[in-house]
């Protein structure tokens, strides 16, 4: 089989997908990043290689997510793209005619507006990460319920309670107050979903024209309570596409297809990188007042990439590093 790999290294999850030559999704892997992106990418590659038939040819690799640069130098990516572009790319392929994408991930949330298949506007949370997946995770842990059951419990609510959603810290104290007053768990969870949706629409969706078809994707889309809260707030049907939790990786694979079509054969280093010894570390440059934090990645003890320096003194010292578009 021949095809394309897409790797999305997010704050919470690392997702890898394999698309065949007709860009049909053949295999997906969803792992928790757990603060160790290198191990997550290696583990994911090993897993997907094991599931795919032997004699596989990878014609292109794309990386995305907040760890995209790191993953990109590790595997030898043909394209390294931000998660907004990859999410839009994947939805417009998988959900024809989509006009609004609601995306909530582990540490960020974004809204993408498409018109005629092209991104016409987008917004992403700034300054604060209130209302993202990590907060839901944390609250589920505090209430001692598995995150997977969160949504279904919320769906059983009879009268969702009002919870302050402006700030995650305030939301938590408000929730504790309601809980001590004796409100039921489903009502509290549904109230929390509504508060997060309100916060999202006020902060990220500010001033945007939200038209159907609207899709809800990213890890939090697994939460049926959140989907219901979105439908209630928007007055629109909101669909959760299949592969909603690996859309970034799908988009990266699609873009990898475009990139190798333009620029020729793949730079993919092969599945053997899953066994190589990678290490990443950082140091503070003392060359000037900027005091940049320089990150350095090594493979088998050889420096393969550096970034974070404003002047380029460190990053340009790595000869092998080519500009990936």
């Amino acid at each position: 089989m021949k095809g394309y790999l897409g790797i999305d290294v997010g704050s919470v999850s690392t997702n890898i997908v394999f698309l065949d030559e007709d860009f049909v999704i053949r295999e997906t892997v969803y792992l928790r990043t757990q603060g160790r992106p290198i191990e997550a990418v290696q583990g994911g590659l090993k897993e997907i290689a094991g599931r795919l038939p032997p004699g596989l040819t990878v014609r292109g690799v794309g990386t995305t997510g907040s760890g995209r640069h790191l993953a990109g130098v590790m595997v030898g990516a043909d394209t390294v793209k931000n998660e907004i572009t990859t999410h839009a790319m994947a939805s417009s392929q998988l959900v024809p005619g989509v006009q609004t994408i609601l995306e909530i991930g582990g540490q960020d949330s974004k809204m993408i507006i498409l018109r005629n298949g092209v991104v016409s506007d987008f917004a992403m949370n700034t300054v604060c990460a209130a209302g993202t997946g990590s907060f839901l995770d944390q609250q589920a842990a505090r209430l001692n319920i598995p995150i997977e059951e969160f949504g279904d419990i919320a769906l059983n609510a009879e009268a969702p309670v009002r919870i302050a959603g402006r700030c995650a810290v305030f939301a938590e104290s408000d929730m504790i107050h309601k809980q001590q007053m004796g409100c039921s768990l489903p009502d509290i969870l549904a109230g929390l979903c509504e508060a997060l949706v309100r916060n999202y629409l006020n902060n990220v969706g500010k001033g945007k024209e939200i038209l159907p078809p609207a899709v809800f994707q990213g890890g939090v889309a697994a939460n049926s309570g959140m989907r219901k809260a979105f439908e209630k707030a928007l007055g629109l049907p909101v669909q959760v596409p299949p592969y909603y939790n690996v859309m970034g990786a799908v988009g990266a694979a699609l873009l990898a297809g475009e990139a190798v079509y333009r620029a020729g054969p793949s730079r993919f280093k092969g599945f053997a990188v899953a066994e190589a010894r990678f290490a990443a570390g950082s140091f503070e440059c003392t060359g000037c007042a900027n005091q940049c934090e320089v990150v350095q990645v090594t493979e088998e003890g050889v420096v393969i990439a550096r970034w974070g320096d404003r002047c380029g003194k460190w990053s340009s010292a790595v000869n092998e590093q080519k500009k990936i578009g």
Binding site: S66, K81, I84, T85, D108, V118, V119, S120, F122, T126
Partner: peptide, 25 residues
């Protein structure tokens, strides 16, 4: 919105997506 955060990666993601959008348009 600028505040006390000094990590440039988050801003770069937004800028990169914005420039992509401008190019495609």
């Amino acid at each position: 919105v600028m505040d006390e955060h000094t990590g440039e990666a988050g801003m770069n993601t937004r800028l990169e997506a914005f420039i992509d959008l401008l190019w495609r348009r």
